[in-house]
Structures are given as structure tokens and as C-alpha cells.
Computed example of a mutant assay.
Amino acid sequence: MHKDLLDNTLAAFDKANACDPNMEIYKGKEIPRELLYGQRMSEELSMFVSAPSVHLQLAARAQHIERWQSPRSDYPDGRSGYKKWRSQLYLFHAQRAGEIMQAQGYDQDDIDRVRFLIQKRQMKTDQESQTLEDTVCLVFLRHYIEAFALKHSQEKLIGIIQKTWNKMSENGHQAALKINFSEKIFSLLQKSLQ
């Protein structure tokens, strides 16, 4: 597969995510939240895997594509509402990634593979699905756990860390343990893993 096609498609994903009205401050600048998230996913993937496939690179960047268009608030409160929202999101992200890939000139087999990965299919048996999930978890632990810690009780945080850890492979665990956590988060991590 041609490198220009990959680069153009990643840029098209970024262009879509740059429309996110939700902003995050990063290095003193306001950046659309999902644009930043997609770039963090690509960066994390390249640190985690030495030569990720084109499919994996595309799925990582499109992981949250246009997420703001399907807000959590559109679904009922509670666990079942959350689960419904999440499963609909996987379909939405897969659909949007496929549409953008098609517009860029990818064939149906490539589109189907990326959609398969974004939908987290066969995580425990498909190596790339697991690698994508590891990358999602690593991005959460590296970039988002601190903000989560400000909003949730220690008990809830320990549960979140345990759930995150259980989704990861042994390679993911090894990579997570190399993250430079704050003392507070590192001690929470230790408690969670006891």
C-alpha cells in the first residue's frame, strides 16, 4: 500500500477531528479534543509497536473519529445506557473511518479490516485488535488518568484501573509500567494491582 495514500488518509482523519468544538489545552494552546486524541493514539502506537501495519495505523488514528457527534448525554444514565452508547460509538467510528478511507481510494478489503479493528472484534484472538486495545489503554494511562483522578473517588479509580489492566496484554502491561506516573497515580496503580 502506498505511503502517500496512508498519509493523505491520516490527514483526512485529522481534518475531520479538527472540527471538534470541544477544546483541550495542550502545551499552552487550545486544540480540538479528538484531533489531539487521534495524534496521541498514533504516537503511542509507534512507541508500542516497531512496525505497525497500515490497518493498525489507520484504526488507531480513527479510534474516536468525530466522537462529539454521538455524546454520552444522548443515552440513558447508568451502566446499560453506557454500554449501549459504547457499542453504538464503535459502529459510528467504524462507519466514518470507512467513508473517509473510501473517499481516499482504499479498497473494500482494507476498509473492512480497519472497521473490524475499530469495533474491537475478537480482541483476545486477533493480535492487531489486542494491540489497538493496548494502545487505547496506554493513551488513557499516559494522558487521561490524572484528569480522571480529580473527578472520581479512590475506590472508583481503582476499579477503572483494574478494568483497564484486564483489557491489556502482557506486552501492554510492560509498556504501562514504563510510563512516568505521578506519585499519586503510581501508588493507585500499585493498590489496584495487588
Rank of each mutant, 00 (worst) to 15 (best):
I118P: 01
D126N: 15
E133M: 15
E183T: 13
Q69K: 14
V114S: 04
E43G: 09
R86M: 08
D77N: 13
K167D: 09
H143A: 06
G105K: 06
R115V: 00
A149W: 00
A60N: 03
Q63K: 06
Y26L: 13
S153C: 01
T125G: 04
E66M: 15
S42D: 13
L189H: 02
A62M: 06
L157A: 01
D7N: 13
L177S: 10
L5A: 09
A59W: 01
H143L: 00
L193Y: 03
V136I: 15
I185S: 03
S192V: 05
D112G: 01
K27R: 14
A94G: 05
N171E: 12
D77T: 13
P21E: 10
Q162D: 03
Q154H: 10
A59Y: 01
H173M: 02
F48C: 04
Q39V: 02
M123F: 03
Q154D: 14
F13I: 12
E155I: 05
E34N: 09
F140V: 08
H93L: 07
V114E: 05
K3W: 03
D20L: 01
M41D: 04
E30C: 08
D107H: 12
I161Q: 06
Q95P: 00
L193G: 03
E34W: 00
N171A: 15
E133H: 10
S169F: 10
A12D: 11
L117A: 08
A149L: 00
H143Q: 06
I31L: 12
Q104F: 02
F186D: 11
E155H: 12
K163S: 15
I161T: 06
C19A: 14
K3Y: 09
Q69S: 07
M47E: 15
K156W: 12
Q194W: 00
R40H: 11
S73T: 11
Q174F: 09
E128F: 10
C137Q: 15
L132V: 10
S192G: 11
H173S: 04
D14C: 10
D134C: 08
S42H: 04
L177N: 12
I185M: 04
Q69I: 01
K191L: 14
K191P: 02
A97E: 01
R33K: 14
L193S: 06
S70M: 15
Q130G: 10
D14W: 04
L45K: 09
T131I: 14
L35Y: 13
R121Q: 15
I158S: 01
H2K: 14
R96A: 06
